[in-house]
Amino acid sequence: MTEKSKANSPETPIIEMAGVAISSQAYPEKAVIEDINWTVRPGEFWIIAGMHGSGKSDLMATSAGLFPPLSGSYRFFDHEMPIFEDHLVSERLRLGLVFEGGQLLQNLTIRENVTLPLRYHRPEATMREITDMLELTGLKHHANSLPAVVSRSWHKRAGLARALVMRPEILLVDDPLSGLDPRHAHWWVDFLRELSTGHDCMGGRPLTLLVTTEDLRPWRNFDAHFAILQDKRFTGLGGQSDLAGHAQPLVKELLAEH
């Protein structure tokens, strides 16, 4: 089997980490999570919980290939990550990343931000695709505004729309619910659930999802794999049924009603 056909095989794990240590973006020499052994298969939904500063954003950034792991082996669709080679750009585009704050380009309007990856990688894309995505994410009325005049909640949605327009196979969403009002939070939970089961915007195909969170409550009813980040460790918790009675104090804390 050639490397390309192996990477495209449905059995090939999307993410395979073995003994990976992840560095902090602020202090690149310092490990925030060590010895991660983690496999993500197509169609899986992972909820990764942790307190503030536990390395959730660093895990997302490294998983997205923005930073190399400090040590260990990280393979993405059977390619060594991070991928820098120009001829493997199409492999990188199988992954979409939604930053916690949206990370929009401040000198572009919301519409220009959403269309940027399409204009760069797929200039033949139609305006219809973009308009549909803006409507789907509720951004139509803010489309011609600069990010500076739009609230942070919409920045996150624009970040989501920007990642989805490239039709990724796996979507990494960094703490989507932080700082949101209940209406926006419900929208995100419902939309991510639809994406995981197969949304029309993705052609009905279930999207592989990795979501980080500081609060497990909104996600506890999801048919997902759960993991926590604590004391520089990535620990798998199992599925939804394993979550409620879990003995880990942090899990109880993250599930507790305040």
Binding site: A61, A64, F99, G101, Q106, P117, Y120
Partner: peptide, 25 residues
């Protein structure tokens, strides 16, 4: 000022996440 601010606000990482080479863009 523009690029320093973009860097501080994480826009460079955003470009990389879209597989857009920041030097090119």
């Amino acid at each position: 000022i523009e690029l320093g601010t973009a860097r501080a606000l994480g826009e460079v990482e955003a470009l990389e996440s879209m597989s857009i080479d920041p030097v090119h863009y």
